[in-house]
Nucleic acid binder design. Structure first.
Lengths: 341, 341
DNA sequence: TTCATAATTGCAATCGATTGCCTAAAATAT
DNA sequence: ATATTTTAGGCAATCGATTGCAATTATGAA
């Protein structure tokens, strides 16, 4: 089974007794070519089943209409939605998407970024791995003048576009809501503080408590409860306290909130009467637990689209746009797990 | 802000007073080069911050270490898991993944496939859109001798690798299980019969009923209940019958099963006592509904890995492997929604 | 009819890496 | 010391499309 040769512009040129350059012009719809010739070339190309060799074209043009994406995990709801939204935009512009997952490992992130640089992609979109390391690989992207857009988890020092959620505000709103529902001892499940998103959420939590005249209690802040299992463990511990919390804000994820829900239910607690719960991310399942879980929607698909639009704006204005941080306002989705009034 | 030039092998060659070919040989670890020279080149390349231009290399070599993926929706649990599994394999082989989503539209599928062909990818992995059309675009992939692997939703006539779930068996097992649990009137929510996966599931359902001496009743088969909403509507209709079903197998998806669950619960029915429910896909949420939903796990991540391995096997054996269909055995996950004994 | 101008088309270099072929030098054998 | 084989490295063509410049033809104005 031998690979049959692809039709090239030379094949077409030969057949029509033209120069390859004319064929190229016809195919790229240049105005330096006669309309009839153009039509003829187009017709012949179709007949000969011509498909452009993108690699040759990109090499010559020195550009590659492709955007590279590096995310911790492709199959996480939030990230796959970002990608879906981004793809929507890139597709409409005739761009391709190349995807890498870092699996939260810094080394893999570096490898992925380098592979993208090798391909001379027109832009790289990244949400950094939880395992942090040097940012040299990203600095190199900038040095090469490849458009870099960070989202969600970003390296703040790097001067790039950043598309993030207003984590502080979201957390603030969530806690405010819990307070308004009459909860008085609100615990926080916090994520790894190396990631600024978790720091911001914690700050929002603290700010909301302060603004409403509540004390900030270390004992109510539980570190690193990221998964469902850890959420359950945290809940068990918290509920054993002498003065247990009457609400838990799982700022890490909805999975943690689910762990809270399960652990508390297992202990026979009534939700939301005895314990209020709020998660983060608006995972699809939060709607269908019983009770349904109050959470924060991050508009992930829209975020993906925003990222795409930023990229093309930047290209079209050849880098004259001011690198700014786009703060997407998340929305508190109030459901039964925190609604007792 | 001008794009600074990348270092090329010519720059390195010049600096070291070598020929570009020698630099190339050194970088590609050829054995036609002296060990010392090789080391020197490598060192200099690193110093000069050299990154290979993948487009030039691919053009010359006539190959592109990239696999293209076309799926209906990137952000569907099943597909994002397939991609995650596939990425695992391709990454380890130094291959890239280019991703397109068809949004279930045939036209977009065609566009995506063509874009991949243009890029001369080494393989295309596809699950076809629900909106069916001609398979010319896929035939063309084969004509160009690009490796094509279909999965889940496949065009059966095309002779390619196919990685599918044994839908027949899965449906059979599910219905058998329902029968063993004492359900006597088992309804089926079926998907669009143009897609063979849904035909197979229906056949499995029928076979199981027949094998256990149950009648096949048209009235218990409800067409096109694919989403949660349609699942709810179907349930409402089915439960209004004079002889309503005592179990519903939502062969379309877990979302439909969820619709069933919600509609039945709203009607005050007790599950699983009065109505048994079984879904399809093992979406994460099925575990946490109340009651949890019996469903079928498709081992999506493993499927992705299988696809990747098939691709590389094929390449390594230069197409001498027999194009076969790999049937992944799905697993029935029995949960509370169907367990009444 | 003639010259200027515009419209087409061709020529050839180019993008950066790879590779077959060739030569010079070094290593080994006779 | 001479012949033979290895080894290392250079030369130049090549992958396929694009593009600046030159050449040719067509068009129009004078």
């Amino acid at each position: 089974m031998k690979r049959q040769k692809r039709t090239t512009i030379y094949d077409i040129a030969q057949k029509l007794n033209l120069a390859a350059s004319s064929v190229s012009r016809a195919l790229s719809d240049s105005d330096k070519i006669n309309a009839e010739t153009k039509a003829l070339v187009l017709k012949t190309a179709a007949e000969m089943n011509y498909q452009q060799n993108a690699m040759a074209s990109n090499l010559r043009k020195g550009s590659n209409p492709t955007i590279g994406v590096v995310v911790p995990r492709i199959n996480q709801y939030f990230f796959s939605n970002i990608i879906a939204g981004l793809e929507e935009v890139t597709f409409s512009k005739g761009y391709n998407l190349v995807i890498c997952q870092s699996n939260e490992l810094h080394a893999r992130e570096v490898e992925g970024v380098n592979a993208l640089v090798n391909q001379n992609v027109s832009g790289i979109v990244i949400s950094i791995a939880a395992e942090k390391g040097s940012s040299d690989h990203l600095q190199q992207v900038l040095d090469r003048n490849i458009q870099l857009i960070q989202f969600d988890r970003v390296v703040e020092e790097l001067e790039t576009f950043k598309v993030v959620n207003d984590n502080h505000k979201a957390a603030y709103e969530a806690v405010k809501h819990l307070i308004e529902q009459g909860y008085r001892r609100i615990a926080l499940l916090e994520g790894p503080q190396e990631l600024h998103i978790f720091r911001e959420r914690k700050e929002g939590y603290i700010a909301a408590l302060q603004d409403h005249g509540f004390p900030i209690l270390e004992e109510l802040m539980y570190a690193n409860a990221w998964t469902k299992e850890l959420g359950a463990v945290a809940t068990a511990k918290l509920l054993e306290m002498v003065h247990p919390p009457d609400a838990i804000f799982a700022s890490t994820s909805d999975f943690a909130a689910l762990g809270v829900l399960e652990a508390a239910t297992a202990k026979g607690m009534r939700i939301p009467e005895e314990l209020g719960i709020c998660g983060y991310s608006n995972e699809p399942f939060t709607e269908i637990t019983s009770p349904s879980i109050t959470t924060i929607d991050q508009f992930s698909v829209e975020m993906g689209k925003t990222i795409g639009n930023l990229h093309f704006q930047e290209i079209e204005n050849s880098g004259m746009v001011i690198k700014k941080t786009v703060n997407i306002k998340p929305k508190l989705i109030i459901r039964k797990s925190s609604l007792r009034m």
